[in-house]
Write a protein that binds this DNA or RNA. Structure first.
Lengths: 226, 226
DNA sequence: CCCGACGTCATACCCAGGTACGACACGCCG
DNA sequence: CGGCGTGTCGTACCTGGGTATGACGTCGGG
């Protein structure tokens, strides 16, 4: 650590700011180079003091921490300085967490965490890594696991009834191709495509290609964005 | 902490096991109640020693940590014991991390982490929370942010052209309803539904309802599982 | 007050898509 | 060998869905 980590503290409670500042300043590798009582001023201070890390409270008057974080992490044209943002909150509220992470925050800590945690969090974040409160981590993992429990297991499961060729056709349906286009792509007669589709719909208990598209998405055969 | 946290250590290197055991046993609130040199034996030991937390190395002979974790976290019928699993690895490899989290692991640490981290990780995990190595956290957050940059912004963005009523119709299309069913649901003449659909397709540059379904999923208007 | 956006509906037309039935070829397996 | 699953294609039929055009009522804003 040749050069210290530059930190600013944005929180509407003066006592909290003072406490954190004292705590962090006591570290030889950390400099507190600014403070602000609300999001708007926080952004300004950050722009002029160009800190490495911004400690940002979530709930604040004037401009809340979320908006301020967004402003700092996705700055308007011309602004080159992009600090790391470490969000702080008294209670952990889901929405805030997710919004902050989406905005690009590097961490999310509860204020009741041990002081040592805050200090190490600043170091971790400054190093370009990320750190979350354990309860937040748990939730994020749960969410992650829920979203993709096994992207390639569920589909093949219910897709079992379909032959490879049928699966192939189904995927093209799910891409929005017409029967004619599918026939062209697979080098088939259009009627053959119809035959396949007929069997697909029968096997899966669907009515038309629109429902087939739904099935393809719900089963994971195709996924948004892919 | 009236009753200590029961921990077992699964790692193919005896020295590592010994080191961790010594480190953890020194804590008054942690008991090391078992060890195993590979995944298969790890599962067995876990079943008999019923620990609160299983420290599991990723890379192991016989049965790797991932498979063992899956076995412990999604046990066959009849097995009631479900310990928390804390994965350990020497280097951090993406795939392993995601697989482990999907399987339901409560944490993922690098072996080069400070000893204090391991100890607190055990406590955190035992408490039902989760904890990840900072580099892993960063990656998970990045992934999270990438997956859903703003689930309710992108859609409404391109959905802008659509009127509320049209959006409503589109959603029902994406649910697989026929025009007749949509008419019934919205208390409309079938022709009105057709009119709406015609406009929807024109505005979005789509050809038929199948493509409309795709659009609904891709834009986030509807999501798999919802 | 008039116009534009929105929502509603009608009449008419056409075709892609889905259904029904049958047929033939190929490869695998009991 | 015989049968089954799979993939291929043909003919025939029917309907749901998409297109075209026009019309009417209601709002809200300029």
């Amino acid at each position: 650590m040749t050069i210290p980590i530059r930190v600013i503290i944005v929180d509407d409670q003066a006592m909290v700011r003072a406490g954190f500042a004292a705590l962090l300043s006591a570290q030889s590798d950390i400099d507190v180079v600014g403070e602000a009582p609300d999001g708007r001023q926080g952004v300004e201070v950050s722009r002029s003091a160009h800190p490495d890390v911004v400690l940002m409270d979530v709930r604040m008057p004037e401009m809340d921490g979320l908006a301020a974080a967004r402003e700092l992490l996705d700055p308007p044209a011309g602004v080159v300085h992009r600090p790391k943002v470490l969000m702080l909150t008294t209670f952990d509220v889901d929405d805030y967490v997710y919004e902050a992470l989406r905005a690009g925050a590097s961490g999310f800590l509860l204020k009741d965490a041990p002081p040592a945690d805050l200090i190490s969090a600043v170091r971790v974040v400054a190093a370009g890594e990320a750190l979350l409160a354990p309860s937040v981590t748990r939730r994020l993992i749960a969410d992650f696991a829920r979203q993709r429990p096994a992207p390639r297991k569920d589909p093949s499961l219910r897709l079992n009834g379909l032959t490879p060729r049928e699966t192939e056709v189904l995927e093209l349906i799910a891409r929005g191709l017409s029967n004619q286009e599918i026939a062209g792509r697979l080098v088939l007669a259009e009627q053959t495509v119809k035959t396949h589709i007929g069997r697909i719909l029968a096997k899966l208990g669907l009515r038309d290609r629109a429902q087939a598209v739904i099935f393809a998405y719900e089963s994971g055969l195709v996924s948004p964005g892919s």
